[in-house]
Amino acid sequence: MINTLFPNVDWPKMWEAALETLYMTAVSTILTAIFGLALGLLLFLTSPQQAWANKLANWLTGAFVNIFRSIPFIILIILLIPFTKLLLDTIRGPNAAFPALVIGAAPFYARMVLIGLREIDKGVLEAARSMGAKTSTIIWKVLLPESMPALVSGITVTCISLVGYTAMAGIIGAGGLGTLAFLDGFQRNQTDVTLMSTILILILVFIIQWIGDMITMKIDKR
């Protein structure tokens, strides 16, 4: 039955591609979370009246974030080819997608981190300072825990974008469901392969959203 609906789908190959997509999404999400958090915290802490208030640093970080957030992803991949080559000595395969994925998604996530941090009650920060907290304590024990629901829902949205980005990276040979849909589906005119790839990506997105919502709900004690 399923073979009559999807006659051209090579299931082991499809499964392998799905795992590649999953791998690219997972690793790039982790890296994006780390770099995005760092950038977001830097944006927040260098803004006026914060612990590291510094106009120049704030402007530079802001400019970096805005530039890389504005470049369309498909163009970013091409622009970053020399950089990727330098870094990884190859531009093919799932690993070669990471520089572009992270540089494309981290600034996007940094903005969401900033929004989350700005929503923290100023009074709570003042209270922490009044107790004699160091900036590092404020980061780890106030800023991050108090904005955690926003950070988690932000990384959920970013992760879903990254699923899309991995598919785009697939076009230039990163592997995964994007490559499969493009090479086997589009170029060989096998619509069922494209369709199956889409279904798998949809399932992945739904699962990510569901996990994200669950975690956000569980940690939000407000």
């Binding site: 009650d121 009074g123 709570v124 107790m131 004699g132 160091k134 106030v142 825990p145 108090e146 004690k221």
Partner: peptide, 22 residues
């Protein structure tokens, strides 16, 4: 030094300023 002083000079607030996550 100021942080040390603040351990001995504490403060309460109109809007309590508790950490909701704790």
């Amino acid at each position: 030094k100021l942080r040390q002083v603040r351990h001995k000079v504490s403060m309460i607030f109109q809007h309590f300023n508790l950490l909701w996550s704790r």
